[in-house]
């Protein structure tokens, strides 16, 4: 069975920008190991010459005319922003 260690899981959580509690880390380590162990059955398949399927429909280069049109209103969009000032989104200081 595929082993997933807690360190690996925490590294994945770090990439996914998710702070985890210790309890969550243990739980998800076990869950991932269980799932991956089960999904290892995909190794039974001979996939050598199989093309990966990325989409249900094969459409290529869907284009439209580049025409000017109304866009969403800035004030309306800012209504869902927690903190903003002069039409810009506010975040904590990033340079100190």
């Amino acid at each position: 069975m595929t082993k997933v260690t807690k360190e690996e899981l925490l590294a994945v959580a770090d990439r996914a920008m998710l702070a985890l509690t210790d309890e969550e880390a243990d739980l998800f380590t076990e869950d991932l190991a269980t799932f991956i162990g089960y999904a290892d059955k995909l190794n039974e398949l001979d996939l050598e010459n199989v093309v990966p399927m990325t989409h249900a429909l094969q459409q290529i280069n869907v284009m439209r005319e580049d025409v000017e049109r109304d866009v969403l209103d800035r004030d309306e969009m800012l209504r869902s922003v927690k903190e903003h000032q002069n039409g810009e989104i506010k975040v904590p200081t990033i340079l100190s």
């Binding site: 994945v12 999904a39 093309v51």
Partner: peptide, 23 residues
């Protein structure tokens, strides 16, 4: 999110994600 990030990670992409797309 964790399972998906794991499957897309460098070193796992071919083994899990691409294999799944072939299946």
């Amino acid at each position: 999110i964790l399972l998906g990030t794991y499957a897309l990670s460098a070193g796992h992409y071919e083994e899990y994600y691409k294999k799944a797309q072939k299946a």
